[in-house]
Design a protein around this nucleic acid. Structure first.
Lengths: 325, 325
DNA sequence: GAAGCTACTGCAATCGATTACAGTCGGTCA
DNA sequence: TGACCGACTGTAATCGATTGCAGTAGCTTC
């Protein structure tokens, strides 16, 4: 692999000039041409490790998500990637598996690789951004919120829960169950709060056995739904608080014998790979791709030099600035 | 951020010794202890760009796939990641979008970052591994096969197509349509060949309008299926040659009016996010996670020094060695 | 013709870890 | 006592690109 020095020698200039040509800085046209020619002939490719060492940052952006197999996060990844590419950044997709240790390790690696920063959907409440912060790297938090003083983009989860529940009520459902996520997960708790709020506003009861906590995966949703089908009186509707749980709920219903009661299902999230016609479902779509795009834009603004206070963006019109909450 | 020199100073040793402690090379126990203590106190984190520059390789592995939103490839990614982690490698997931240009760019970056190598599901027939090859990096090709002389892991796609078709025939279907992928895509072509072969073996006709070429995505499958529903005589079965197309086919059928004919569906691939009971479908599962695991293992063998001829592994028992084909 | 200015260009230090090579030290053995 | 060995340690070169600084050449202006 040719080095910059070889290109410089061939073009009859110094490495400084080669570097400047490659960076698009002003250089006499004829030597710029000579450099480009030499680079092509040697098919020179810049060594990014050398560059990052010297510059103290690279063109890599870590995107840390709890589950790459969740279509929600892959859609986020698309949004991030498409936006980042335009700024010349490449995205490193990391899977934390909702494990704070794996998350910490990935963030440490990001710091150690001098990456430009990270966009993180955090596994636990507190985010170990120590290394990145010390290096002055950019951090944007998505989907779930944290205490740390960083830019954040997410949804108004209480509102989502409330809206989905209201839609069910509008359809005439009265006994509405909720499949929430693991206790301790903020998004799950908030959506559940929205469900409670909507029920309370409509003057409806909340029997404790109508609330189930599941892991936020397909099997969790399936098991929780199976459990709910056995409750008396049976719920007329089930609110699935995320996409995976929704899939599980639909699978459980599809597999249940025809003579069992068949509740309505509401899903917070999208079902791109549904194999049924889901137009009849109550759905509150989330537009994960836009979440990714917005997060990447905020990331790029920071990279570009923006130094204002940490921002909190709530998707769907409402944007909370940095004013004291 | 502390540097190795600072750790060395604090521990009263040279950077060479610090480096050796971190690498687990033999060092006097008391100085090793001093180094570890100093490292902890300064919460030192090694600079990987400096290391990669000097070593000429990093602990990063690029995994290039045509579509991160396809659950098949995210499952592959899980397999690769789980296996690579154990060897201390981190996986960089890159999305080529089936675009040879994007693919080339990602592979160039991998080379330029001195990554350990790449596992690639190639977009086009020829693979631009130039940069990586020149640096002596490892390359493993998955899912689709290429001319290049590199390790490859994939499926016997003709066999898959034949098996799915046979299962349909066993169910009594006679008029069997096939939704193939973009012409030029090897996996699609081979599965289609398998379909033809099975039909021929059973002495069945292949009316040309029973073969559709779709993009390998949900909308492609949906449109192709809609088209097939209008053909006379209507097909008794539809073979979807990949998972996304299968989803599209099922969606199209779910949305079609009840009085239209309703063909059987066979799918090559898995449907983890189906919202119906798919146990009644004809399915030929692929175990993408294992594909990832196997590819990563072969990758690690090369990293570990294996230098035999390029291997071709066909998943599901059959393994073709490096003997002349 | 001198001064000043624009527009480049090159030298050399620099980023931080790794490692070949040349010690150093303590112990063993003849 | 001296030769030698084993086990570690330090010095300094090295990886390849970037960039502050100090030019230099060519031009304009008075």
């Amino acid at each position: 692999m040719a080095t910059m020095a070889e290109v410089a020698a061939r073009a009859g200039v110094s490495t400084a000039t080669v570097s400047r040509v490659l960076a698009g800085k002003p250089v006499r046209p004829d030597s710029a041409e000579a450099v480009r020619a030499a680079a092509t002939e040697l098919d020179y490719e810049l060594d990014r490790t050398a560059r990052s060492l010297r510059r103290r940052y690279s063109d890599l952006l870590a995107l840390v998500v709890p589950d790459v197999e969740n279509p929600f996060f892959t859609a986020v990844a698309r949004g991030v990637e498409d936006t980042a590419r335009r700024a010349g950044l490449s995205v490193v997709l990391c899977n934390s598996d909702d494990d704070p240790d794996k998350e910490r390790r990935y963030l440490a690696i990001a710091a150690s690789e001098n990456m430009a920063g990270a966009i993180v959907a955090p596994a636990a409440g507190d985010l170990p951004v120590g290394g990145l912060a010390r290096k002055g790297a950019t951090v944007v938090v998505i989907d779930r919120s944290v205490e740390a003083d960083v830019d954040q983009v997410g949804f108004d989860n209480v509102a989502l829960g409330r809206e989905a529940t209201r839609l069910l009520i509008d359809r005439g459902c009265r006994r509405i169950a909720c499949i929430s996520g693991p206790s301790g997960m903020g998004t799950a708790r908030d959506r559940e709060l929205g469900w409670r709020a909507a029920l309370a506003e409509a003057g409806l009861e909340v029997p404790p056995e109508y609330l189930r906590h599941a892991n936020f995966r397909v099997d969790g949703g399936r098991r929780a739904t199976e459990g709910l089908l056995g409750v008396t009186p049976w719920p007329e509707a089930v609110l699935a608080t995320n996409n995976m749980v929704g899939i599980g709920a639909l699978q459980a219903l599809a597999a249940s014998p025809g003579d069992e009661p068949r509740p309505e299902v509401a899903v917070i999230g999208d079902l791109p790979y549904a194999t049924t016609d889901v137009s009849g479902l109550v759905q509150v779509p989330l537009r994960p791709r836009e979440l990714g795009v917005r997060a990447a834009e905020m990331f790029l603004e920071r990279l570009g030099g923006f130094t204002g206070a940490a921002r909190r963006v709530v998707l769907d019109g409402t944007t909370t600035g940095a004013e004291p909450a």
